[in-house]
């Protein structure tokens, strides 16, 4: 690991000098530093900032401090009842030990687990811009079918972010240029020809909170994840869904896909195809296909199309049956 200077953050909007990065739970950053993929000159520890609370918002939503640990958030009673998809997504990710350290903000900003990105000795346009991408012709079984570019086909690894994208969560950011709000669906950039930048955040901007809006449909929501082993593995594909059915028709629906794109993939096309339509498995399957029509799979990851189609149909059917 390259040597660095360590200090604690002075305040929310204090910003960062060039070469400095924020340290929260460290479960991804410290690992990347050991691997030589992250090489910060300065680590600014934000764990002592007052960002550890989950609180109510005036509109009935909730505000999650960015330092709230994944395990605490998954167990939060308000989250479990009003946004079960979020609790389930958190619990589907990592292990008990990692969830006890990993924070809400850090989970959003974790990097891809693409094996070429994680290996500092390999070319990778994300960790060394311009060096090329071995994944397109190499090991890409778990990489993107949507949103990738010739330069990068990395997937965002978070489960939590998929649930947040589905329930219209908004990220609160503080920095030297002031405060701003960014929907989770707008936080991530697609790689295009600059895959080294995962998000729209500027250097020195700190996520202070994630707001969940009051969203009645989210009370009937769920997260389903398919992976190579029963537990403690990244998703091969996942679906976050919320559904309200009235008189057999889809009255409201939220849908997002995980492990298929460089960002949590909010399935707007599928949602639009479903609104007002009969809540049947056939329609759910067709809606997933409408979203997946844009997929551009590589040699070894076309399985994700069928996986996401089937997960979507299964999850929405279960939610619809629950209602009747």
């Amino acid at each position: 690991m390259k040597t660095f200077e360590y200090r604690t953050a002075a305040g929310l909007a204090a910003g960062l000098e060039p070469g400095a990065v924020f340290l929260a739970g460290g479960t991804n950053l410290v690992d990347l530093m050991k691997l030589g993929v992250a090489t910060p000159d300065v680590l600014v520890d934000v764990n002592r900032l007052p960002l550890h609370e989950v609180s109510g918002l005036p509109d009935g939503g909730i505000r999650i401090g960015s330092a709230v640990r994944n395990s605490d958030l998954a167990a939060d009673h308000r989250v479990r009842t009003a946004y079960p998809v979020l609790s389930q997504a958190l619990l589907a990710g990592a292990s008990g030990q990692l969830r006890n350290m990993a924070t809400t903000g850090g989970n959003l900003l974790q990097r891809t687990r693409c094996r070429y990105f994680m290996d500092a000795t390999m070319p990778c346009n994300k960790h060394r811009p311009g060096s090329g991408c071995p994944a397109r012709d190499g090991d890409h079984r778990n990489l993107a079918i949507l949103g990738g570019s010739p330069a990068c086909v990395a997937t965002h690894p978070s489960d939590m972010a998929v649930a947040l994208a589905a329930v219209d969560a908004v990220v609160q950011v503080d920095g030297p240029a002031g405060q701003r709000s960014i929907p989770v669906t707008g936080l991530y950039r697609l790689p295009e020809d600059t895959p080294e930048r995962d998000t729209v955040l500027e250097h020195g901007e700190l996520i202070t909170a994630v707001d969940l809006p009051a969203l009645p449909v989210a009370a009937r929501s769920t997260y389903r994840k398919a992976r190579d082993r029963a537990s403690y593995a990244f998703a091969a594909g996942s679906v976050a869904a919320a559904l309200r059915v009235a008189d057999g028709l889809v009255a409201d629906v939220r849908l997002a896909f995980g492990a298929v794109a460089p960002k949590p993939w909010r399935a707007y096309v599928a949602e639009e195809a479903l609104r007002g339509q009969p809540a049947t498995e056939e329609r759910f399957r067709a809606a997933a296909d409408a979203e997946l029509a844009a997929a551009r799979p590589l040699r070894d990851n076309a399985y994700k199309i069928a996986l996401i189609r089937n997960l979507t149909a299964a999850v929405l059917t279960a939610l619809a049956e629950d209602v009747r």
Binding site: Y6, G26, M101
Partner: peptide
Amino acid sequence: LLDGRRVNSCLILAIT
């Protein structure tokens, strides 16, 4: 156990 909570000590910097 860190303040009673289980954690992976390999991913935590001692100085923190």
